[in-house]
C-alpha cells in the first residue's frame, strides 16, 4: 500500500457521505490540505490522517447536516405524536379488531392473540413511519435554514393544572364501586339470595369458591385499599400506581377468564333465570370480559398518569 493511496482512501471515505454536487470540490481541497499539512509539519501522512480523525465525523461537518435524525425543534412534537398514537389510537384499533374477531366467531384467546400480533406490527409501523416523516421534515427544514420553531411558544401552551378535586371524586367513586362489588360477591355467597324452587342458591357459580373467586376478591380488596391510599396521601407515586395496576390485573384477568369460559354464574340459576327457550349468547360473555379488561386497563393507565403528573 503506497502512502499516497492512504490519502486517496481517506478522501474517498469522507466524500462518500457528502452530497454529490460538492464531492469533487471537497475532495480536491482535502487532498491539497493534507499534502500542505504533511509538507509543513514534516509529519507522515498517517499521523496527519490520524489527527483528522474518523472520515464520517469530518464528512458530517462538511455536509453541515446535524448528526441526528430529529433535532431539538421537532423532538417534542415527535414524542408527543408518537406517545399519542401508541397510547390511544393503537389500543383502540386493537380493541376494534378484537371485537370484530369475536363477532366473526373466533374464541377470546384467538382474538387476543390476533390483537397482540396486530399491536406489534402496527406499533412498529407507526414508529417507523412517524420517525421517517420527521427525519425528512428535519432535513428539509435544515436545508432551508429554518430550524426555528414554526410557532412561538406562549405561556398559554402550559398544560392545565390537574384538578385535585375532580381526581379525588373519581378515586372515591372507584373505591366505593369496587367495595360494593366486593360486598355483593360475599353477600350473595352467604345469603344465597336466589330462590330455586324451594331451595336457595348463590347467583355466582359455587365452584368459584374453590378457585377463581379468591384472586378476584384479593384484587378488589387491593383496588379499594389503593384508592383509599390515593385519597389520603398527597404523593401518589409510580410504585403505588404499579401496585394499583397489579391489583387491577389480579382482579380483571380472572374475571375475564371466568366470563369467557362461562364459569361465572351458577348453571342451575342461569337456566332458571333464562327460561327453557333462551340461552345467554357467547357474545354477552365475551363483550363483558373485554369491557372489564378495558375498564381496568383504563383505570391503571389513568393512575400512572396521575402519578407522573
Amino acid at each position: 500500500m503506497t502512502a499516497s493511496s492512504l490519502t486517496e482512501r481517506y478522501v474517498h471515505e469522507v466524500v462518500r457521505w457528502i452530497p454529490a454536487d460538492q464531492r469533487d470540490d471537497i475532495a480536491d481541497e482535502l487532498r491539497a490540505t493534507i499534502a500542505d499539512t504533511v509538507e509543513a509539519r514534516g509529519a507522515t501522512e498517517r499521523e496527519v490522517l490520524t489527527e483528522m480523525g474518523a472520515p464520517a465525523r469530518l464528512a458530517a461537518r462538511y455536509a453541515d447536516r446535524p448528526p441526528a435524525l430529529i433535532g431539538p425543534d421537532l423532538f417534542p412534537v415527535y414524542k408527543r405524536l408518537l406517545v399519542g398514537l401508541l397510547s390511544t389510537v393503537l389500543p383502540l384499533v386493537a380493541a376494534a379488531l378484537m371485537l370484530l374477531d369475536i363477532a366473526d366467531g373466533k374464541s377470546v384467546g384467538a382474538a387476543i392473540g390476533g390483537a397482540v400480533t396486530m399491536v406489534l406490527t402496527v406499533g412498529a409501523q407507526m414508529i417507523a413511519w412517524v420517525t421517517m416523516l420527521f427525519a425528512l421534515v428535519e432535513r428539509s427544514l435544515h436545508r432551508r435554514g429554518a430550524t426555528a420553531r414554526t410557532r412561538a411558544w406562549t405561556p398559554d401552551d402550559l398544560p392545565a393544572p390537574v384538578q385535585r378535586e375532580r381526581r379525588g371524586a373519581a378515586t372515591l367513586t372507584s373505591a366505593v364501586w369496587h367495595a360494593l362489588l366486593l360486598v355483593l360477591i360475599i353477600w350473595q355467597h352467604v345469603a344465597k339470595p336466589y330462590r330455586l324452587g324451594d331451595a336457595r342458591a348463590q347467583v355466582l357459580d359455587p365452584a368459584l369458591w374453590s378457585g377463581w373467586i379468591w384472586p378476584i376478591l384479593l384484587g378488589l380488596a387491593g383496588i379499594v385499599a389503593l384508592n383509599l391510599i390515593q385519597l389520603t396521601t398527597r404523593d401518589w407515586t409510580v410504585p403505588l400506581a404499579a401496585v394499583h395496576a397489579a391489583a387491577h390485573a389480579i382482579f380483571a384477568l380472572p374475571v375475564a377468564y371466568v366470563l369467557s369460559r362461562h364459569m361465572l354464574f351458577d348453571p342451575n340459576v342461569l337456566t332458571d333465570f333464562n327460561g327453557p327457550d333462551w340461552k345467554t349468547p357467547d357474545a354477552f360473555y365475551n363483550v363483558t370480559a373485554l369491557a372489564v379488561l378495558a375498564v381496568s386497563a383504563g383505570q391503571a393507565i389513568k393512575r400512572f398518569r396521575e402519578a407522573r403528573g
Partner: peptide
C-alpha cells in the same frame, strides 16, 4: 486553508483543521 490555519494558530486562535475547513 492550511496557511490560514497556521496564521490563526500563530495569532493565538486555537482551532483545528476539522473545524476550520
Amino acid at each position: 486553508g492550511y496557511a490560514l490555519l497556521e496564521t490563526l494558530n500563530n495569532a493565538g486562535i486555537a482551532v483545528d483543521g476539522n473545524t476550520l475547513y
